[in-house]
């Protein structure tokens, strides 16, 4: 059974199921600023044309919340609650993501790692996946 991304161009799924996914970013060849997701015009210096880069699989939790209401009203009522956070990656981008874990598992500043979650099976029998972040085992918060 193959794994396919919910939307093309945002992350790469390694062939090895034990490997974490990689977020696809851009680096400006002029000013060096790094972005997620990919973009053509540098948002900092307006240079046209950027280089593709793959981003780190770990980062620090900048902020988080735990949402008690189902995703988007009643559409996904099967989901009881979920964490939402923003993770600062070492290359610079701050990435917003749904978090894996319970309401008491998160702390600002803690180390997070990326993972894939299977959302559903599509009509071809493939698993549709999206990236999520989860606390690194044993991670603790810091400023």
């Amino acid at each position: 059974m193959a794994r396919v991304p919910i939307e093309e161009g945002f992350f790469r799924i390694p062939d090895d199921p034990g490997e974490p996914p990689r977020l696809l970013g851009s680096r400006c060849p002029t000013c060096g600023e790094v972005f997620f997701p990919r973009r053509f015009v540098c948002a900092q210096c307006l240079h046209e044309g950027t280089d593709d880069v793959e981003l780190s699989t770990r980062g620090r939790l900048w902020t988080w919340t735990y949402s008690h209401v189902p995703m988007f009203g009643k559409v996904d009522a099967s989901v009881p609650g979920y964490g939402v956070g923003q993770i600062d990656l070492p290359e610079g981008p701050r990435v917003q993501s749904i978090l894996l874990g319970g309401p008491d598992d998160f702390e600002i500043g803690m180390e997070m790692e990326i993972d894939l979650e299977v959302l559903r099976e599509n009509t071809d029998g493939d698993e549709v996946v999206i990236y999520r972040f989860r606390p690194v085992a044993g991670a603790e918060g810091s400023a």
Binding site: I6, E7, F10, P37, S67, V69, M71, F72, G73, V75, D76, V84, I98, I130
Partner: peptide, 8 residues
């Protein structure tokens, strides 16, 4: 089916 959905 969007990467940025769905969060309230």
């Amino acid at each position: 089916d969007r990467i940025d959905a769905p969060i309230l």
